[in-house]
Design a binder for these strands. Structure first.
Lengths: 115, 115
DNA sequence: TATATGCGCAAGTATTTGCTTGCGCAAATT
DNA sequence: AATTTGCGCAAGCAAATACTTGCGCATATA
């Protein structure tokens, strides 16, 4: 059911994340990718299909070989989703830090008596 | 099988992403969350369990109510993974832009003759 | 031309996922 | 004390997922 295919689901699988890692810098053909994994070549082919279907890669035919070319810009969807929370958790961290530092400045510190 | 539970799988489901959105700013109790969705309360309870198991939220008991408190810092795992590619695709875009601009400067532009 | 290689199609299988329903326990309310 | 509310446990079901195996087509090589 193609309606369920989205980027978040595509990257949920560790094998597909590893594939993205392989093709991020330059296109790689299918069999070369498949050789790096312990599962069958067909299993990798199916993963590539999923990544292609949600736009994370293009497949370019060169003779009998198919080159998989990453479309990393499609990860922007995940990047933006995470970014909104990243700002939330980092600003909260800063608020907490500022609060604790203010507490530290205000709290009286009894002098340690010398022995 | 809990071994498969990770943050990427947790956020793969749109319902769980929506739940995270609901609790991001302040803790919310389980039934209040469940009321916002069309599925059964128990289905939401199961989603909350998944989010709790991978560390995306804590559950705090207050009497008979359970408050779900987001742990957004756990999304750092996704943030970092996406960030490495974000830098790649934005720097590639800049390289392409620079290249095209250079091409534009060098290309001779024939003057348009006046009629 | 014959053989080898690249790789998707299709079918089948086991596992996982997302959901519903019924039940039961603890806490709050009446 | 009785009832209501909050909510997890467990079982069951349908759909989705991840994988394997066998086959066949197109292209490259010998």
């Amino acid at each position: 059911m193609e309606a369920r295919r989205d980027v978040f689901q595509a990257i949920a699988d560790p094998t597909r994340r590893a594939i993205i890692g392989m093709i991020a810098e330059q296109p790689v053909n299918v069999n070369t990718i498949a050789e790096q994994f312990d599962v069958s070549r067909q299993a990798i082919s199916l993963h590539l299909k999923i990544l292609m279907e949600c736009g994370l890669l293009n497949i370019k035919q060169q003779g009998r070989e198919r080159l998989c070319e990453a479309r990393l810009d499609k990860l922007n969807e995940v990047h933006e989703w995470v970014q909104q929370y990243h700002q939330l958790w980092t600003s909260r961290l800063k608020s907490l830090k500022g609060f604790l530092e203010q507490e530290a400045l205000q709290a009286p510190h009894p002098k340690k008596s010398k022995k």
